[in-house]
Computed example of a mutant assay.
Amino acid sequence: MSFFANYLNIALIAIALVSGVLLAWPTITRRGHGLSAADATQLINRRNAVVLDVRTAEQYGQGHLPQARNYPFEELTAKASQISKNKGTPLLLVCQNGQRARKAEQVLTDAGYAEVYSLQGGLEAWQTAGMPVVK
């Protein structure tokens, strides 16, 4: 009990707890299932994820991920049932910078898909990482 009677020890314990919470905060508050380019590649290769590009058809035509299907965000709600027969299949959503894909995540989750991920930073991050783009 003398350990807890020393105020210095209590202060050190408090500092350690606060530091632990601050280190874990980004993980705790992270919304959605954003993946880096490397993690997205693993999801595609190991789990046969379906890649959906939620940009416009014009943007899609300028360059997209290999094997990506184009489902513009504006049409996603209407076409959600056509994406995959198995709603347990992982879906990877891609847009230009990641914002539209995060919105699309919610649409597809509400449609019943179990595993929906978005590419953090979108196509821009994919290209920055040196990953292939198909035109």
Rank of each mutant, 00 (worst) to 15 (best):
H64Q: 10
R69M: 12
P90G: 07
P72R: 08
R31F: 09
C95Q: 01
R31M: 10
I28L: 15
A24L: 14
A111V: 08
R69N: 08
I28V: 14
E75C: 00
T41W: 07
A38M: 11
R47T: 14
E58Y: 08
Q42S: 15
A57S: 13
S118Q: 10
K85D: 14
N45D: 12
S81A: 14
L23E: 01
N70H: 10
L91I: 13
E105G: 03
A40H: 05
E74W: 03
L22Q: 07
Q96F: 04
G63R: 09
R46S: 15
A40D: 04
E58L: 11
A40W: 03
Q82K: 11
P66K: 08
S19H: 00
D110F: 02
S36I: 08
G61Y: 07
V21Y: 14
T56N: 15
R100D: 09
A101D: 02
K87T: 14
V116P: 01
K87Y: 10
A68K: 07
S19Q: 01
V54C: 05
D39H: 11
N70E: 10
D110R: 12
A68R: 07
L23G: 04
T89L: 13
S81G: 06
A37R: 07
Y60F: 15
A101G: 12
K85R: 13
F73P: 01
A38R: 13
L43N: 02
L22G: 03
S118F: 12
Q67L: 13
L92P: 01
I44T: 06
A104R: 00
G112L: 05
V54L: 09
A57W: 06
G61K: 09
Q62T: 15
G34A: 06
V94D: 00
K85H: 10
S118G: 09
I44P: 05
E115K: 14
L52S: 03
A104T: 06
V51G: 12
A57L: 11
Q82I: 01
L119P: 03
Q62G: 15
V94R: 00
V107M: 02
G20R: 07
A78S: 15
L119F: 08
Q82V: 00
N48V: 01
F73V: 02
D53I: 08
C95K: 04
P90W: 03
L119T: 04
D110P: 00
A101E: 04
A24I: 04
G34Q: 04
H33N: 15
T27S: 11
H33S: 12
N70R: 09
D39A: 15
K103V: 04
A101Q: 05
G112I: 04
R46T: 12
K103Q: 15
L52F: 08
E74A: 14
Q42L: 14
P90Q: 08
S84H: 03
L52T: 04
R47V: 02
S36W: 06
S118Y: 13
L76F: 08
L92W: 09
A57D: 13
T109H: 02
I83A: 02
Q99F: 10
A57G: 07
A49R: 01
H64I: 07
E58C: 03
S36P: 02
G112A: 06
A49T: 09
G61A: 11
T77Q: 12
Q96D: 13
I28R: 00
N86I: 06
N97K: 10
A80V: 03
G34C: 02
